[in-house]
Simulated scan of single mutants.
Amino acid sequence: MFDHVVFGVSDYAASKAFFLKALEPLGVMLVSEGPLGIELCRPDSQSSLCIRRVEAKATHLHLAFTAESRGQVEAFYRAALEAGGEDNGAPGLRPQYHANYYAAFVIGPDGHNIEAVCHQAEG
Rank of each mutant, 00 (worst) to 15 (best):
E74G: 13
R78T: 15
V28M: 02
I51W: 06
L49K: 07
E33L: 13
N88P: 00
M29A: 14
A79H: 05
G92W: 15
H4W: 04
G37N: 13
R53A: 12
D44S: 12
A58C: 02
V9I: 06
V5H: 00
A58Q: 01
V106S: 02
A14E: 07
V6R: 06
V5G: 06
C50K: 05
S10K: 07
Y97G: 13
S48E: 06
A103M: 05
R70Y: 04
L36Q: 12
S10E: 06
Y97S: 13
E115Y: 09
N100M: 10
V73H: 12
S48F: 01
L81E: 01
R78S: 13
R52V: 03
L93F: 14
Y12F: 15
D87P: 09
S48C: 10
C41A: 15
V6G: 04
T59Y: 02
V117H: 09
A90H: 11
A64H: 01
P91E: 08
L20H: 07
C50H: 03
P43K: 15
S47N: 10
C50L: 01
L36I: 07
M1F: 06
V28Q: 00
P95M: 13
A67N: 10
G84Y: 03
F19N: 11
A67D: 06
N100E: 09
R53E: 10
F19S: 02
T59I: 11
T66Y: 03
A104L: 01
A22S: 08
F7S: 01
E24R: 07
R70M: 04
A90D: 04
Y101A: 05
K21Y: 10
L23G: 02
L30I: 04
A80H: 04
L40W: 14
E55Q: 03
G37T: 12
E115L: 05
C41T: 15
V54E: 07
V54W: 00
A56T: 09
A80P: 11
R94F: 11
V5A: 13
G84W: 09
K16P: 03
E74N: 15
D44P: 03
P95I: 12
Y102E: 04
M29Y: 01
E55G: 10
A90K: 15
L49R: 03
I114G: 00
G37P: 05
L49P: 06
A67Y: 00
A17T: 09
N88G: 10
A79W: 08
E86V: 15
K57Q: 14
L81D: 02
F18K: 04
N113M: 10
A79M: 09
T66A: 10
F65M: 04
D11C: 02
A90T: 13
H119K: 09
Y101E: 03
I51D: 01
E33T: 14
A103P: 07
Q46Y: 05
L23N: 05
A56R: 08
I51E: 03
G123A: 15
E68F: 01
E68T: 10
P43L: 14
G34F: 10
Q46L: 11
V5D: 02
S32I: 13
V106C: 11
A13V: 11
F18G: 04
C41I: 11
Y97V: 14
D87V: 14
L61G: 02
A90F: 12
I114E: 01
Y101T: 06
V6Q: 09
A14L: 07
A67C: 08
G123Q: 15
A75G: 05
S45V: 04
H4K: 06
